[in-house]
Design a protein around this nucleic acid. Sequence first.
DNA 1: CCAGACGTTGTT
DNA 2: GTCTGG
DNA 3: CCAGACGTTGTT
DNA 4: GTCTGG
Length: 219
Amino acid sequence: MCGRYTLVNSREALEKAFGAAFPEGNESYNVAPSQKVLAVASSTEQTKAGWLQWGLIPSWADDKKIGHKMINARAESVDTKPAFRHLLERRRCLVIADGFYEWDREGGTKQPYRITVDNEEPFAFAGLWDRWEGKEETITSCTIITTEANDLMQNIHHRMPVILDEEARKTWLDPHETDKQVLKSLLQPFDASRMAIYPVSTEVNSPKHNHAALIERKG
DNA sequence: CCAGACGTTGTT
DNA sequence: GTCTGG
DNA sequence: CCAGACGTTGTT
DNA sequence: GTCTGG
């Protein structure tokens, strides 16, 4: 599954990699739920890059705290769950990253790993977003979709975030594509041969920590 | 009909 | 808002 | 995801 | 144990 990731590339590097304009923001070695994530969101009106709050707060929520529980959505059921099915048709997004963390909890210990794609190139998670209008604030938030683990990740975990390649990204962001079966078919485990994994320090466990040493190979 | 949930992960 | 359960 | 709090009253 | 915050 996916509950922590990195975005350490500069804005310029990301714009070059995706051929799109991105807003200003800070790099992070430890992006955690509840924080702002860089996303490209589509709707019937427009497709736009911006910073969204990680942890989906549905428009109907009467308490924004529900977002703490909605950091991921299962690909297998995203087209049927009441909280997500409507968003699959109308509010899809990409969440921009260049690595993500996953913990292996064998034998009572928790060993974190960092996983990268295409020799540490930036990539995109598949996500859904929504806008919540509270009494005193409006929050635009998102969730990251998960699927079963590929061969690379199976050893440490049975789930992984959905990563979309360039072709799939176009379809995912196409507001005219509303066929839920077509969209759902994009939500597959990523090609393991294009990914790499290495252990990192447990210092990453705390969301308060955020510095370059977090992505160094440990041991 | 109204009330209440709406989610994932992992562990037992 | 929409679905499920009672 | 993990870490850290989880409570009230009253006083500074 | 469970919820909140980052």
